[in-house]
Computed example of a mutant assay.
Amino acid sequence: MKILIPTAKEMNTSLPTVKSKPLSPESQAVLDALATYSAQELESFYKISAEKAQEEYDHIQALKNGSTRNYPALHLFDGLMYRNIKRDDLTKEEQTYLEKHLMITSALYGVIPAFEPIAPHRLDFLMKLKIAGKSLKSHWQSAYEESVKEEDCIFSLLSSEFETVFPKEVREQMVTFKFMEERDGKLKIHSTISKKARGAFLTALTENQVTSVEEIKKLSFAGFRYREDLSTGKELAFVK
C-alpha cells in the first residue's frame, strides 16, 4: 500500500540539513534543462519577481554544482496540506508507517519516500519545460509508473496535475478522496477545505496505522466523517 501526496510551493528551510543523495538520471535531465535558463529567463518562465527568480537561479546552480542544502522532503514542504500533517513528535510506529507507505510526487525528483533528502526548488507539471523534446509529464511517466507497479493498493491525495502523470491503467487502480463542508444544508468543496482536510486525513491514517479502504471508512478526523451515499468504489467522500 502506498499513499501519494504532491509537493508544495511553500518551503521551510529553517530546519536541520541532511546529507544529499545522488540524483536519478531522470532528475539530472530535468536539472540540466533548468540550468540552461538565466535568472532573467526564469523570471518569465516561472512568472515571478526578479528577486524570486534570482533566488531560484541560485537554487538551481547550487544543485548543479553540489553545494545545495538538503532537507527531508516531508519537512521541507510547508503548504497548507503539509502544515496539517503530523510531522513532529511522531511515535516509532508513526514514523515507520510514514517511511513505509508515504510517497511524495515531484516534477524534479520523481516519486520519492517521505523523508528523502531534497533541495529547495520550484517546479510543477504546469511548467512548459522540455526534456529532450518531451514535456515534463511525458519525461516522468515511465518512472512514475515503475514506482507503484508492485502495489496492490494506492491511496491518492494528489491534484489532477500530479495524478495525470501516471498512465491511465495506474490511475484506474487509485482510491481517491473528496472532502466537503456542509453549510446551510449545502455541501461545498473548495481548495482551502481540501488542503487542510488532506493533511488531517493523512494524520488520521498515520495515527491509526490504516492500510485498507474498510479501515478508512471508519475514520473520523477534524470534524469529517465518511459518507457512503456520496462515495463510489474508487472515490470516498468525507463531510464536515
Score class of each variant (00 low, 15 high):
L90A: 08
D58M: 15
K92A: 15
L136T: 00
Y71W: 08
L205D: 08
F201D: 04
E116P: 04
M81V: 11
E182N: 08
H75C: 10
Q61V: 13
F238E: 04
I216M: 13
F177S: 02
T105K: 11
F238W: 06
R198L: 05
R122C: 04
L136A: 00
G79K: 03
A107N: 05
R87W: 05
K21E: 09
E181I: 11
E99K: 14
E146F: 08
K240Y: 03
E181W: 04
D152C: 06
I3E: 09
Y57D: 13
S106V: 09
V148E: 05
A53H: 07
R83I: 12
R225C: 11
A50H: 15
T105G: 12
S159E: 01
D184P: 00
E10Q: 13
K217W: 10
K217G: 12
F115W: 14
L129P: 01
T36W: 00
S147I: 09
L236Q: 03
E26S: 03
S212A: 15
I216L: 13
E228L: 13
V239N: 01
T105N: 11
L74M: 12
E163G: 01
T7V: 15
Q28T: 05
P120C: 06
K64Q: 14
N12K: 13
Y57K: 13
G185M: 02
S160T: 08
E43F: 01
A119M: 07
C153T: 15
P72C: 10
M180T: 05
E150V: 11
E161Q: 02
L205F: 10
M127T: 00
A29F: 02
P167L: 02
T96W: 10
L31G: 01
E161R: 01
E163Q: 09
P25V: 10
E43C: 08
D32Y: 00
M11Q: 15
P117K: 10
K47T: 13
K217V: 11
A119S: 11
V213Q: 13
L90T: 09
V165E: 00
E41P: 02
E55A: 14
N84D: 07
I104M: 07
S160F: 03
L187S: 04
A222F: 12
F201M: 05
Y226A: 03
F77I: 06
L102N: 11
D78N: 15
Y226E: 05
T105V: 15
A39E: 03
D78S: 14
K100D: 14
A222C: 07
I216Q: 10
E151P: 07
K19E: 13
E51S: 15
S142F: 06
N70K: 06
D89Q: 14
G185K: 02
E228C: 08
L15P: 07
M81K: 09
L205M: 13
K130A: 13
A50C: 11
K168F: 00
R227Q: 12
L205N: 08
E151G: 04
P120V: 09
F224W: 10
E93S: 14
N84H: 15
L123I: 07
S24A: 07
E56A: 12
T68S: 14
L157S: 03
L42N: 03
R122A: 05
R171W: 00
L63N: 03
L98M: 13
F238P: 07
T211V: 15
I193N: 05
T13D: 03
S27V: 04
F155R: 08
K137S: 14
F179E: 00
I193Q: 01
T13E: 11
L136G: 00
